[in-house]
């Protein structure tokens, strides 16, 4: 059993002349729940499709469970659950029929009782046709179909897109249930940071095709800071503070967004720059994400040393 379930090395994808994914190099360890966040069009779906062998990379490589994505063997696909973008299934089938279809591919692995329980929990009837389900209900069925074979690795592309709060909650509960089992790993992309914060313990941030962060969630939370400085004269134009991401000046005030800067360094700089006072601004995960990905695209993720 490998310790790294997902690994990419310089994974790059061009659509014609458009760069969709730029040099993605990440390592996802076993047993973690990795939230893959990024704005619309930042490259999440491209990355996920590349990982599952649905797209061919322009450069670089990726491996799932130790096997090259471009050559995923049937035995490996048996261990990987996948909820695709939009969670489209087979329109004309009923829930019961698609369960039967899906279970045929996982002999000995399929947990029919679990599937029935999930469907019941989601208040769906097995006689309903997929085409008559709402997006949210389809997401639920997709999740149940992906979880019932007890996968080692679950990859989900924006599974809660378009779901209302109540259904999202049920969906997350389903995910938590999988997490409870040892050795399971989940990678899911989302732009609902509240969900990510609840469930993920690892964060993967992508912006304009570039991976900006690949670290434990807690590390990101501690590292991204916003500090407001008050000056008695106009603040200095040149700011020499390590970890500076961007700054905003407003008459006598200065707002800095910093990454990985130790509190002592901030205090030091405030002193040397002659600030009257400074105050950290509280941010939740969503605020941190917005600040971190604001501005023109960055080429490299920040170094996380020393946090």
């Amino acid at each position: 059993m490998t310790d790294t379930v997902l690994e990419t090395q310089g994974l790059t994808k061009y659509y014609g002349s458009t760069l969709a994914l730029d040099n993605m190099t990440v390592k996802i360890p076993r047993g973690c729940i990795c939230g893959f966040v990024g704005r619309n069009g930042s490259g999440k779906t491209t990355a996920i499709k590349l990982l599952l062998g649905f797209l061919n990379p322009t450069a670089g490589s990726s491996m799932l469970l130790g096997c090259d994505s471009q050559n995923l063997t049937p035995a490996l696909r048996q261990r990987i659950g996948y909820v695709s973008e939009g969670h489209r299934l087979i329109r004309w089938m009923t829930i019961a029929e698609i369960a039967k279809f899906q279970s045929a591919f996982f002999p000995g692995q399929w947990d029919g009782k679990f599937f029935r329980e999930m469907i019941e929990y989601f208040e769906l009837s097995k006689k309903q046709k997929i085409k008559h389900l709402s997006t949210g209900q389809r997401a639920q069925v997709s999740l149940a179909l992906a979880l019932a074979p007890n996968p080692e690795l679950l990859v989900m592309d924006d599974p809660t897109l378009g779901l209302d709060a109540a259904i999202r909650r049920q969906f997350l509960e389903g995910m938590i249930r999988l997490i409870m089992q040892q050795g399971r790993t989940i990678l899911f992309s989302s732009h609902i940071l509240g969900d990510v914060e609840r469930v993920a313990d690892r964060l993967l941030v992508i912006d304009k095709g570039v991976i900006r962060a690949d670290c434990p969630l807690e590390q990101f939370r501690r590292a991204v800071k916003k500090v407001k400085f008050v000056f008695s004269q106009p603040p200095p134009a040149n700011i020499n503070l390590e970890g500076l991401l961007h700054c905003k000046t407003n008459e006598k005030e200065l707002e800095l967004v910093l990454v990985g800067t130790a509190d002592e360094k901030i205090a030091e700089w405030a002193n040397s720059a002659g600030a009257k006072d400074y105050q950290p601004v509280n941010m939740n995960l969503e605020d941190q994400f917005i600040e971190y990905t604001a501005g023109p695209g960055q080429k490299k993720p920040f170094s996380w040393e020393g946090i």
Partner: peptide
């Protein structure tokens, strides 16, 4: 048209 390929092709099957 119905975007069903991704589901259909993620099978434990060549």
């Amino acid at each position: 048209y119905f975007k069903e390929w991704n589901y259909l092709l993620h099978r434990p099957m060549d």
